[in-house]
Design a protein around this nucleic acid. Structure first.
Lengths: 250, 250
DNA sequence: TGTACATCAGTGAACGCGCGTTCACTGATGTAC
DNA sequence: TGTACATCAGTGAACGCGCGTTCACTGATGTAC
């Protein structure tokens, strides 16, 4: 499990009353932005509205936030942080050697958060906000916690010899082969995350990752038809079960 | 393959010059809306901007479109229609009995369209537009063409006996079971789409469906890290291959 | 074929609204000596 | 402990912008007789 994102400078504990007030107000701005997000969506997020809710004149917010884009960045980091915390906590609650259990806990944690916080989920995993580009140097750390957590589980299972042998589960005439180009990307990822997983399983891990979010997005964004699936929990549990198999976990 | 959506009343071929002009202008409005969408996103779609591009005073658009929401609906239907056309055409180009080939053709067609039309893809499969609700009676038809196409392929494979026996490919101690509640939903779907697929395979079909869109959304919305995957085509082909296996196709 | 009337497309002004951002300012809080 | 100065939070006015929607209107196109 990766330690907390280390690229963002940790804000020192505030000393003076003025510093404490400033930290409080900044936190309030983020909180109000969050609420505004939930009601009106990211594209309509407005500094003026936040100022109004804060009970302050609109220009005052600029003491705390450079501009609208920076507020979006703060909200992004805030959301990634909360999601990461919940996911890591849920995973840690399952015994280390129960790899499939850990995977399912991860999936349920993501889904739980997404359903509770649809607007923030949409900010992270929905359509990009037009005209806004997240600064990679600030969001890359918090934004990769879930995938790090996921690959850590599968990698641990692999190292423990608890993973189905690579091409086995879906072998056949067209068993998915990893092309040479793809292998280059996978090698870089393996390097960066310090993994031992072979190509095929790593590629499958990527698929499981996107599939998990695909299933959650369909639910949160209402892409299943109107009343098509009433048993959303059961459907998701089924998906988790199958996805665990795709990842090679029992 | 479903015939063209039959819920929307087919507009008769325009007779008089006035009628032809009206059809032309309406088409222009949709086209301009599409372009506006691509640049500024759905939330910022504006009738005034469309009117400007059309070279007409803003109130004139109201002759053609009730309000902003109706323009969104037209764009939604337009996009679903084009996607549906391309997917169905791509599938039809592969021999009927090559089920896995048809599935891959479907996946490639969706991805191809999504990459070419990211804004319209986002309108259909991204975060919901705040404050807008699509009228089900107009969008349900065109909006289900891809999933109908997908299930038709898998169902045909099943009927032809070309599908791996149900729980086989990923059998094991925790082979994904379909709960009783989920079975109710699946029965309704089977009924509505006229399928023969058993529960397990139908549930897997739903997972494959959401997974396909999950992979595409990650790519189109830039959710993979900055330069994480350079070999996007190869990655997608790999995913398709694995997903075909998950669906039970060879 | 010609005339009288009805329909329709598009105009231009207006309503009331919200937005991001800048700027010179007041007054309170903190710091150095 | 007291004073002089620097820092900071918040004000209020302003700039220039865009939006959706309504309304009374003009003039062109179509239709009935």
């Amino acid at each position: 499990m990766p330690a907390n994102n280390d690229s963002a400078p940790a804000p020192r504990a505030p000393r003076t009353p003025r510093e404490r007030a400033r930290a409080q107000t900044t936190a309030d701005i983020v909180r109000l932005g969050r609420e505004h997000l939930a009601v009106h969506g990211a594209a309509a997020l407005s500094l003026r509205a936040v100022a109004r809710d804060l009970g302050v004149v609109s220009s005052a917010v600029y003491r705390y936030v450079q501009n609208r884009d920076e507020l979006l960045t703060l909200l992004l980091i805030d959301a990634y942080g909360e999601l990461g915390d919940e996911v890591e906590a849920a995973v840690a609650r399952v015994p280390e050697a129960d790899f499939a259990g850990r995977f399912r806990a991860l999936g349920r944690a993501v889904r739980g958060w997404a359903v509770r916080e649809p607007a923030r989920y949409a900010l992270l995993f929905g359509s990009p906000v037009p005209g806004y580009r997240a600064p990679a140097e600030r969001t890359a750390g918090p934004g990769t916690r879930v995938i790090r957590s996921l690959t850590a589980i599968v990698d641990a299972a692999w190292r423990a010899g608890a993973l189905r042998a690579e091409p086995e589960p879906l072998a056949g005439p067209s068993a998915a082969a990893v092309s040479a180009q793809l292998a280059v990307d996978l090698a870089a990822i393996r390097e960066e995350l310090g993994l031992a997983l072979p190509d095929g399983l790593l590629a499958r891990g990527a698929l499981v990752w996107t599939s998990l979010f695909g299933a959650i997005s369909f639910e949160v964004f209402g892409q299943y038809g109107e009343g098509t699936f009433a048993a959303k929990d059961a459907l998701f549990e089924h998906h988790l079960q199958v996805l665990a198999g795709v990842a090679g976990l029992e």
